[in-house]
Simulated assay, not measured.
Amino acid sequence: MKVIRKVAIKQEVTENSKEKLKKDYEWKIFQYEQECEQLVFEQKKLEQQQTVQKKEDIAARFKKEIDSRKDHINWYKYKLEQLDLLPIGNQIHDGEIDAIVEVEEGMNWEEMQKNASIVIRDGIVVNITE
């Protein structure tokens, strides 16, 4: 029988991976800032077309969306700060994938349940633990 189990992906921190993550975080911050500006523009455009009551509803809706994006911006700024403190050689969690595992009678269930992981260094798989 085949079953699916989660496998952790870990990224080993190198100078290259730190630089790539830094660029990724900065790009996401830029994107969210652009979205905030676009939302403010759309909000003003809609408010010019509506009544006072509708303007309040529109403002509340747009505020919620803008605040959500600002939270994301703050999160990525925090991640940038933490990235600077991260020593080379450390491993960071980079997600999970599903793996298909063959289960047969007589197998040790506890051994199969142990956390499997894949370690990646600069885009290359360097270690697989099962």
Results as ranks from 00 to 15, higher is better:
residue 112 M to S: 13
residue 54 K to W: 06
residue 1 M to T: 15
residue 111 E to S: 15
residue 7 V to Y: 06
residue 61 R to W: 05
residue 76 Y to P: 02
residue 37 E to L: 12
residue 68 S to A: 12
residue 32 Y to E: 11
residue 28 K to N: 07
residue 120 I to G: 05
residue 76 Y to V: 02
residue 123 G to W: 04
residue 73 I to C: 03
residue 22 K to H: 01
residue 21 L to M: 07
residue 70 K to S: 05
residue 2 K to E: 12
residue 75 W to L: 15
residue 69 R to L: 11
residue 65 E to A: 13
residue 76 Y to A: 00
residue 100 I to W: 08
residue 99 A to F: 08
residue 66 I to D: 02
residue 44 K to Q: 05
residue 103 V to S: 05
residue 41 F to P: 04
residue 17 S to T: 09
residue 29 I to G: 04
residue 70 K to V: 06
residue 107 M to S: 10
residue 41 F to D: 04
residue 54 K to Y: 07
residue 47 E to R: 01
residue 36 C to Q: 10
residue 89 G to V: 09
residue 80 L to V: 00
residue 19 E to S: 10
residue 55 K to C: 07
residue 43 Q to H: 02
residue 66 I to C: 00
residue 27 W to M: 13
residue 10 K to T: 05
residue 7 V to F: 10
residue 79 K to L: 07
residue 22 K to D: 01
residue 18 K to V: 00
residue 53 Q to L: 15
residue 14 T to Y: 03
residue 106 G to C: 02
residue 110 E to S: 12
residue 63 K to N: 15
residue 92 I to V: 11
residue 53 Q to K: 15
residue 47 E to C: 01
residue 7 V to M: 14
residue 82 Q to A: 02
residue 98 D to A: 10
residue 39 L to A: 00
residue 120 I to C: 04
residue 72 H to S: 12
residue 50 Q to W: 09
residue 71 D to K: 14
residue 4 I to M: 12
residue 87 P to C: 00
residue 90 N to K: 14
residue 7 V to Q: 13
residue 81 E to F: 04
residue 37 E to V: 03
residue 110 E to P: 05
residue 12 E to A: 11
residue 35 E to F: 06
residue 85 L to M: 06
residue 99 A to R: 13
residue 12 E to P: 01
residue 106 G to A: 04
residue 43 Q to N: 10
residue 91 Q to C: 13
residue 82 Q to N: 09
residue 121 R to C: 04
residue 43 Q to R: 15
residue 103 V to R: 09
residue 48 Q to P: 02
